[in-house]
C-alpha cells in the first residue's frame, strides 16, 4: 500500500479506535461472552482439575479490564495446551542430561523437568497448597486469594514437593505472555486482541513508508500470518 492511500486512513482509524475504546469501557464481560459462544476447547494435555487451574490462573495473570481483553478471551489456556503437544512441551532444545544439582539461582535452571513435567508438578503443588490452606482447589477460591497465592508462588515462598514454586510460576507466566501475544496460528491471541491492545501491526513487516513519520500513530490494524485482520 502506498503513501497516497494511507493518507485517508489515520482519521478513520482513530475514529474506529475511539469506538472500540468506548465499547471496551462498558462491556468488559463481553470478552468472556464472546469466548463462550465459541465451541469449547477440549484440552489434550491437561486433565479437568489442571485445566480449571490453568483457566483460573490465566484470568488473574492477564485480567480482562479497561485496557483490553484478558487471557481467557485470547484463548491463552488453549495456546498452552497446544504448546504441550509440541517438541517444546517435551523439552526439545533443553539440556536435560544428568547429573542434576542445585546451585546459586543466577546459574540458572537445574531441574530434570520438561515444560510438561513442570505443569504437572506445579499445578499439583498449587492445588495442594490451596486445599491445605483454604480448603478448596485454586480455581474455587476468590480472585483476591488467587492473587495472593500467585504472588507467593512468584516470590518462591510456597513449598512444593519437587518444583520450586518460583520455577513453576516463571514457566506459567512466560507461556501466558506468549499465548497473549504470539501469532494466532499457535492458538492464542484470538482475534488479534493482544496485538491490537498493544498497538502492534503483526505480520505486516513492511514500514518503508512509515519509518520517518516521526511520532505519528501507525494507521493500519494488525494482520496475522494467515491473513486474519483485526
Amino acid at each position: 500500500m502506498g503513501i497516497g492511500s494511507l493518507r485517508l486512513m489515520p482519521s478513520r482509524r482513530r475514529f474506529m479506535q475511539g469506538l472500540a475504546g468506548v465499547a471496551a469501557c462498558g462491556t468488559v464481560p463481553a470478552f468472556g461472552a464472546s469466548a463462550a459462544t465459541r465451541p469449547p476447547y477440549a484440552p489434550r494435555f491437561f486433565n479437568a482439575p489442571q485445566w480449571d487451574f490453568l483457566i483460573a490462573a490465566c484470568a488473574r495473570l492477564i485480567p480482562a479490564d479497561i485496557h483490553g481483553p484478558g487471557a481467557l478471551a485470547l484463548d491463552v489456556p488453549r495456546f498452552i495446551d497446544m504448546q504441550m503437544q509440541t517438541p517444546y512441551g517435551h523439552g526439545a532444545g533443553w539440556y536435560l542430561a544428568g547429573p542434576f544439582m542445585q546451585g546459586a539461582d543466577n546459574l540458572g535452571y537445574q531441574l530434570p523437568y520438561t515444560p510438561r513435567d513442570l505443569y504437572q508438578r506445579g499445578i499439583t503443588g498449587m492445588n495442594a497448597h490451596a486445599t491445605t490452606r483454604h480448603g478448596r482447589p485454586f480455581a474455587a477460591l476468590a480472585p483476591a486469594v488467587q492473587d495472593d497465592l500467585l504472588r507467593a508462588a512468584e516470590q518462591g515462598s510456597l513449598v512444593f514437593d519437587e518444583v520450586p514454586s518460583a520455577v513453576f510460576f516463571e514457566q506459567l507466566l512466560a507461556n501466558v505472555m506468549e499465548g497473549a501475544f504470539s501469532d494466532p496460528i499457535h492458538g492464542g491471541n484470538t482475534g488479534l486482541g493482544g496485538w491490537t491492545m498493544l498497538g502492534f501491526p503483526g505480520a505486516r513487516a513492511d514500514f518503508m513508508d512509515w519509518v520517518d513519520r516521526y511520532g505519528a500513530h501507525y494507521p493500519l490494524g494488525s494482520v496475522s500470518i494467515s491473513g486474519e485482520r483485526a
Binding site: 532444545g93 539440556y95 536435560l96 546459586a104 546459574l107
Partner: peptide, 21 residues
C-alpha cells in the same frame, strides 16, 4: 542445547552447572 551446551560458574571455587535453557 539438548545435544551440546556449556557449563558456567562465577569463580573457580564453584561447581559449574550446565546452561540448560
Amino acid at each position: 542445547l539438548s545435544k551440546n551446551t556449556v557449563t558456567i560458574r562465577n569463580n573457580s571455587q564453584q561447581t559449574a552447572l550446565p546452561y540448560r535453557r
